[in-house]
Design a protein around this nucleic acid. Structure first.
Lengths: 121, 121
DNA sequence: CAAACAAGTGAGCAACTATTCATATGAGTA
DNA sequence: TACTCATATGAATAGTTGCTCACTTGTTTG
């Protein structure tokens, strides 16, 4: 049964209806696609990649991170907020400083996987 | 010895010079960071995620893909060009149609890893 | 050859994003 | 209390990006 495949009923100019239906059945849900795009998008920025990689080497405060990257602490802080919101990093306050660490083991693995891809070309 | 850590020599208002130097030593090269950001950035879009996932289920032509996603074939074609340039997908021409397949096993693994992250929250 | 269709592409536009700058908050310190 | 410094944040700006629309290319078919 299943419900109507809407689009292809009225306008089927091309082909492979069987394949299309089959793929549709195994397709990602919207939320899954959105979630994937979100996490990958977060990793898809040079600055954030460097921040995350730096944190993978150990705990650092904002000021350390900006020193490592050679950018302003404001820029770093903005990016850290995104990473914090997405639960990729964790903050710990101590006196005037805020220390950040990775908060997601997946990130480490994604990094390793991604590096393999990059190096192998 | 090592060379001067440039920035912090003149302006070292904050702290943890030891840690900063240590992290700098283990830091990603610029190319590696750029490469990682590039691949993750490509995966960081809802449309491309869906295209790649569809292709992970089997070979499809442009027209099939746009039917699956419910978008124009032009939009799909534009995205496919990016994916082709980055060697993430491979094209095979047959008559009027062009059939695409995944061209990178890493992508499949990254997807799996990413999905784990997404589902686990 | 002409018509039809799949796919690719450039220009233009709207939406998004990363940085900078100015400022705010809040903790340590004189 | 007043000052300094680390961090956070809002607004503005410059750059990027994804889509649409119009058009081109190239292939099949009448």
């Amino acid at each position: 049964m299943s419900k109507d495949t809407s689009l292809d009923a009225c306008e089927a100019p091309c082909l492979h209806l069987d394949r299309v239906d089959q793929v549709r059945a195994g397709m990602l849900t919207d939320e899954a696609a959105e979630g994937l795009a979100e996490i990958f998008g977060l990793l898809g920025d040079r600055t954030r990649v460097r921040i995350l990689h730096a944190l993978s080497l150990g705990e650092l405060c904002v000021c350390d991170i900006s020193a490592v990257l050679g950018t302003t602490s404001s820029a770093v802080s903005h990016q850290l907020r995104l990473l914090r919101t997405a639960k990729l990093v964790k903050a710990r306050k101590e006196g005037k400083n805020v220390y950040y660490t990775l908060d997601d083991e997946h990130v480490r693995q994604l990094f390793a996987q991604g590096l393999e891809h990059v190096q192998e070309r």
